[in-house]
Each structure stands twice: as structure tokens, then as C-alpha cells.
């Protein structure tokens, strides 16, 4: 009886919902066709114009605040308008996959782009070029309170009793994945001894991580508002905090991890010409310099050499390639419910 009533209720609700989505579907597809055709006319009229909708990961805002004016004030993108949205990398990726109207996506980690490739929204060869679709990056650093009162210098110091570590939630944040991969790579010697790496992560997450901010930006806010002794973050985010005069400093441990932040054009972009032009611009020396000035490590070797003193090279910089690439790392460690790190995190935060 109760099952029957529940079924009827479900059916009624479903019918209602279907009717509503049917209406909504009709409406939105109408508007999207008209707006895309008008967009096409606009791109025909002028070479690069119109609006670019950019979906970025939270911390990237610091970079685009410098790079977008560089694009729109220079010759290439003059007059182009930007619609920017920033948030947790995974969350942003899921929004675009669910139909958010993006032209360009700039995520923290490759799997967030892979999701869009699977959804047919980013072309499969997005990272086939020499630059691999990575216009900028960073390294994982340890941010501490000014004067480093707890004496944090290396990964082992995080496991000292009573140390409270702030790092975002790996199920929404790309930053969180980098932050956990860094000590994992160090402790497992580049993945050759996974058990040692996981043992470190287990004691870190279980004993020292008490908050779960959604994104890298939120983690910084949480730390700056007084929670925790240590913040794991991007070097660029640490640089931005120090430059903003926040009472923090950062330590880059002798061994850490190379962060590579991918960018791609969305295939269903309403303004593909401008989107492509913008992504191409990101790799030009002008844009690379702007990234470097914003605290992000440039990929252009000449520019990188010019800014070498701002970005000291650690003793050993592990990369995602050392661990076997994102496809296998993400599946092995971060898959929901089965990934090894996912299981540790779930158990600690349930």
C-alpha cells in the first residue's frame, strides 16, 4: 500500500516535472538558437568581438585579472567583453557539463577537462599541441602564520601533534588534489611505494585536517580568518596573500609537486573565434609575462628564465607524469567511493 502510494506520488511528480522540463526545454532551445545565430553574425561582421564566457577555477581569478585586460587592451582582443565565473574546479566543470554556457574553461586539474571531453563539450585533441593545453602552472607550497611560529619546513612537520592543516575538499577542488598528491609523491618516491604515500595521507587527513572548504580560494579565506596552523595551497595563491599584506608567509618544501593548470575551448562555444584567439593569446610571451607577474609559473621557457628569481626551483619537483598521468592517478586515487585517497577522505570526514 505504502509502496503503491509512493509510486503514484513519484509518477505524479515525474509527470509534472517532465511537463515542466518539456516547456523549459522548448523555451531555452529557442532562445539558444536565436542567440547563437546572432553570435555567428557578430563574428562574421568583425574578426574577434562579442563576449567570451570564461569558467575558471577559483584561484585563477588572480591571473585573469591581469591577463584579460592584456588581451582586451592589445590588438588581438580589442573590444571583447568577458563574462567570468570562478569556483571550485570540479564544481565548475560539472556546471559546464550540465549545460552552463562556457566558451573557455580554465580548470585546476586535467580530469575536470576530461569530464567535458567525455560529455562531448571539449574536443579530444585539446591537449595534442606542443603546449599540452597548459598555459601556466605553479607548485604546491605550505603557507604558515607570519614568523612560522610552529616551525613548519617540510612535509613531516605537518604530522606533529596538534598541527591543524587547512586544505580544500578533493571532491570539489582541484587544489585539494594537488595538495594531497605532493606529499603522496614525496613519500611514495614518485609512486613506487604507494603504501608509504597513502600511510602519510591517512595520518594527515585523519589527524590534522578538520575543515573542508569547497575551493582553493575558500581554503585561503578560512585560513586568513584564523582557522588552522598550516594552509596547503598553490604557490601563486601564497604569493597573492603575501602581496596583499596578509599576516602569512610560505615555505616551499625541498620536494614538492608541479601544478599544471589546463585551459580549453568549448566545442559548443557561442563565440568560438574569440575563444580560440583568447586561448592562443595565453601562450604568447606578453600573456606569459602577465601570468608571471600575477605569481603563476609561466610555461614559455624564455619568460620563465626571465622570472626565475621569483620562482625558485625546489630540490625535486615531482610531476603528474611521474605518477603515471592524470587518467590513472585520478582513477586509482580520487574515484568516488573506490579511489584510495577518496576512501581515506570519506572515512575521516563522514
Amino acid at each position: 500500500m505504502s509502496r503503491a502510494t509512493r509510486l503514484t506520488a513519484t509518477a505524479t511528480a515525474l509527470a509534472g516535472a517532465m511537463a515542466m522540463t518539456a516547456c523549459a526545454g522548448g523555451g531555452s532551445s529557442d532562445t539558444s538558437t536565436t542567440s547563437s545565430s546572432s553570435g555567428a553574425q557578430a563574428t562574421d561582421a568583425a574578426k574577434v568581438s562579442g563576449t567570451i564566457s570564461l569558467y575558471g577555477y577559483s584561484v585563477a581569478k588572480t591571473a585573469y585579472d591581469k591577463v584579460i585586460p592584456g588581451f582586451t587592451s592589445g590588438g588581438a582582443g580589442q573590444g571583447v567583453q568577458f563574462q567570468q565565473s570562478y569556483g571550485a574546479s570540479g564544481d565548475q566543470s560539472r556546471k559546464v557539463a550540465a549545460g552552463a554556457p562556457a566558451d573557455v574553461v580554465s580548470f585546476s586539474v586535467e580530469p575536470d577537462i576530461t569530464r567535458l571531453v567525455k560529455a562531448g563539450l571539449v574536443s579530444a585533441d585539446w591537449n595534442a599541441s606542443a603546449t599540452k593545453g597548459i598555459p601556466f602552472g605553479s607548485v604546491v607550497t605550505i603557507v604558515v602564520r607570519k614568523g612560522n611560529p610552529k616551525g613548519i619546513h617540510d612535509w613531516d612537520d605537518l604530522l606533529k601533534p596538534g598541527i591543524n592543516v587547512v586544505t580544500p575538499n578533493p571532491f570539489s577542488s582541484g587544489s585539494a588534489k594537488w595538495n594531497l598528491l605532493a606529499p603522496y609523491a614525496v613519500k611514495s618516491d614518485g609512486g613506487t611505494n604507494p603504501a608509504a604515500g597513502l600511510a602519510y595521507l591517512s595520518s594527515l587527513i585523519t589527524g590534522h585536517v578538520h575543515v573542508q572548504p569547497g575551493s582553493g580560494r575558500e581554503a585561503t579565506e578560512t585560513f586568513l580568518q584564523g582557522t588552522g596552523d598550516v594552509l596547503l595551497s598553490y604557490e601563486d595563491e601564497a604569493i597573492a596573500a603575501v602581496r596583499a599584506g596578509d599576516p602569512v608567509e610560505y615555505v616551499t618544501p625541498p620536494q614538492t609537486f608541479k601544478i599544471e593548470n589546463p585551459v580549453a575551448v568549448v566545442t559548443k562555444a557561442k563565440n568560438p573565434t574569440a575563444a580560440k584567439a583568447f586561448v592562443d593569446y595565453l601562450f604568447t610571451p606578453t600573456a606569459q609575462k602577465l601570468f608571471a607577474e600575477a605569481g603563476f609559473r609561466p610555461v614559455d621557457p624564455t619568460v620563465a628564465a626571465a622570472y626565475a628569481k621569483d620562482f625558485p626551483a625546489p630540490q625535486k619537483l615531482w610531476t603528474i607524469a611521474d605518477l603515471g598521468g592524470w587518467a590513472s592517478v585520478d582513477k586509482d586515487l580520487f574515484t568516488k567511493d573506490t579511489g584510495k585517497v577518496a576512501v581515506i577522505y570519506d572515512k575521516a570526514t563522514k
Binding site: A88, F171, T222, Q225
Partner: peptide, 26 residues
């Protein structure tokens, strides 16, 4: 959202928990 700290099991309120679950795709 700003003053609460969003610390699970301490100051995280239900609405913040709901938002977190949406953000981590649950």
C-alpha cells in the same frame, strides 16, 4: 557563511552541509 567557519561537526550548519554536498556532487 562568513562568521560560522563551516567546521564540520562543530559550526557547520545544515545549509552549509547541503551546499558542500552539492559542490562535491552528492
Amino acid at each position: 557563511v562568513l562568521i560560522g567557519g563551516n567546521i564540520p561537526r562543530h559550526t557547520q550548519v545544515a545549509s552549509q552541509y547541503i551546499q558542500q554536498q552539492i559542490e562535491i556532487d552528492q
